[in-house]
Amino acid sequence: MIWMILLGICSGMLVTLSRQLNGRLALSTSAMQSSFWNHFVGFAVLVPCALIAGSLWPSEAATAHWFAWVGGAIGVIFVAGGSWLIPRLGAALTGGLLVAGQMLSSVALDLLRGVDAMLSLQLAGVVLILFGVYLSRRA
C-alpha cells in the first residue's frame, strides 16, 4: 500500500517534471516544437512498452469510435500551452490554473451529461476554485 501511495505521488511529480523540461526546451525553440518532441520521444518510449505488453495493434483498435483517436491532437495544443505558460507564470501557478480549468470543465461536462454525484459538494469545490483563480490575479 505504501508503495502504491508513493507511486501515486510519483505520477504527479512526473507531470510537473515533464512540463518543466518542455518549458525549458521551448525557451530555446518554440512551444510547438517542445510539444512535437514531447509526443515524438514519448512515442519512441511507448513502442517497446506496447510490444512487451502485447501488440502494437490490438484487434479492437479498428472499431474504436473516432473521438477515441483525437486525444493526441488535443494533447498537442495542451502541451504547447503548458510550455508557453510555464516561463510566464512559474511551475506552481501554471499547474494550479491548469488543474482549475480541468476541474471546472469536467464539472460542466458532468452537468451536461446528467451525472450529479453529490452536486452540492462539487459546487462548493467550483466556488473555491474560482476564488483561487481570482486570488492569483491579485498582487
Binding site: 490490438p58 477515441a68 488535443i74 500551452g81
Partner: peptide, 30 residues
C-alpha cells in the same frame, strides 16, 4: 491556462475511451 485545462478534460475523455476499448498502453501510444 483555464482553456488548456479544459482541453485536458477532453483529451482524458478521448484517451479514456481508447483505453477502455483497447488497452491503456495502446491508448497512450496512439
Amino acid at each position: 491556462a483555464l482553456c488548456a485545462g479544459a482541453l485536458l478534460t477532453l483529451m482524458l475523455l478521448s484517451n479514456g475511451m481508447m483505453a477502455a476499448h483497447t488497452t491503456p498502453i495502446f491508448a497512450s501510444l496512439t
